[in-house]
């Protein structure tokens, strides 16, 4: 499997090598793609080496998970869409037919034509190009916010669950307090106070919903700290920090992955919502939410301006949810026997 992805990536790399140095956008995209491909290659190498070391084919927990996941058709569909979206997001500058900022004054508010496959908006910008770029923005912000979010949530949850007592009380009460502020209010206040940059947007989105993350991880680590292998480590005198890192965190990984996956879809929806309200990504940068908001004004003149970004949002959220649900099912009884 991984091998085909690798070959595909290399083909793409060679294909786009000519355009790689067009502008900063393409350089960055090409760099990221190259890096990911190299990482995949290293992963493939490590995995094949490990397989060689183990003479017989006893399956690891991950193999079992993969087999379970593969039988779940909707999860696999979700995974393929997510993968495709990742490619689109990373390689956006190479995929767009025209510059998404380029205004074609001769073709304003059009339906699908030969020049503009999905039509143009009221300023003559290509809808397809803008949607691709908007997907890239949404995926980028979503991923970054979720990474921040899960890092924060996981570490707070781990600490609260493992140490318990006062630590637990302080962390959880503070998080509950934070969570009790309505999200939109918080977002408006923060964006007003900090200004509406991309970075601030990520910050706002990643700070919300830490509580749910922390709660689940806290519950898990409370259970895990009673496991006998943690007791064994304590009897050996292993310090708490190492116990947390080596024994508790790796065993919380499954719920973290599942939650993060589900959360990406949710976050993208949230960002779209904020952008729709004008609080999120600021024009002229394309974003799914503001495209939708824009399209809504021209609903009768040009329905494509709303339908395209709307269905992309639907697709993204659906794909992540299906994939996340499938992951949850596959990881559910991961290490029973």
């Amino acid at each position: 499997m991984l091998r085909f992805v690798l070959i595909f990536n290399v083909v793409l790399l060679l294909w786009f090598v000519g355009e790689a140095k067009t502008n900063t956008d393409t350089i960055v995209s090409y760099g990221i793609f190259l890096l990911l491909t190299v990482l995949l290659g290293v992963m493939q190498l490590v995995m094949s080496r490990r397989r060689k070391q183990r003479e017989d084919d006893i399956r690891t927990a991950w193999d079992l998970m993969w087999r379970k996941l593969r039988r779940n058709k909707s999860a696999m569909a979700g995974m393929w869409v997510v993968t495709a979206l990742c490619y689109v997001a990373i390689l956006a500058p190479f995929l767009v037919p025209v510059d998404p900022y380029n205004m074609d004054w001769g073709a304003m508010s059009l339906g699908p034509t030969a020049g503009h496959w999905l039509g143009t908006d009221e300023m003559g910008r290509d809808t397809l190009a803008r949607t691709i770029y908007a997907t890239r923005v949404a995926m980028g912000i979503g991923l970054l916010a979720v990474v921040l979010n899960s890092l924060l949530g996981t570490s707070l949850g781990l600490l609260a669950g493992y140490y318990g007592g006062k630590t637990d009380n302080i962390i959880m009460r503070l998080l509950e307090f934070w969570n009790s502020i309505p999200f939109i209010l918080l977002a408006i206040a923060l964006m007003a106070a900090l200004g509406s940059g991309l970075f601030n947007l990520v910050l706002v989105v990643s700070l919300t919903g830490i509580l749910e993350f922390a709660r689940i991880i806290r519950g898990d680590s409370q259970l895990l700290k009673k496991a006998d292998y943690v007791n064994a480590a304590r009897v050996m005198g292993i310090p708490n920090r190492q116990i947390l890192r080596r024994h508790i965190l790796p065993n919380c990984l499954a719920p973290i992955i599942v939650m993060a996956t589900l959360r990406i879809g949710e976050t993208i929806l949230t960002i779209a919502g904020l952008s729709f309200l004008g609080l999120g990504v600021q024009p002229p940068m394309p974003s799914l939410g503001s495209m939708l908001a824009n399209g809504q004004q021209f609903l009768y003149e040009n329905i494509y301006m709303s339908i395209v970004p709307g269905s992309v949002i639907l697709l993204i959220v659906l794909a992540f949810n299906l994939f996340g649900d499938g992951l949850r099912d596959a990881l559910d009884s991961r290490i029973t026997q």
Binding site: A227, D228, Y229, N231, R246, N251
Partner: peptide, 15 residues
């Protein structure tokens, strides 16, 4: 040192 009762929970499944 200690040896535990439950051989299923006394070993870290990720190691």
């Amino acid at each position: 040192q200690m040896i535990f009762q439950d051989p299923y929970s006394s070993l870290n499944p990720r190691m």
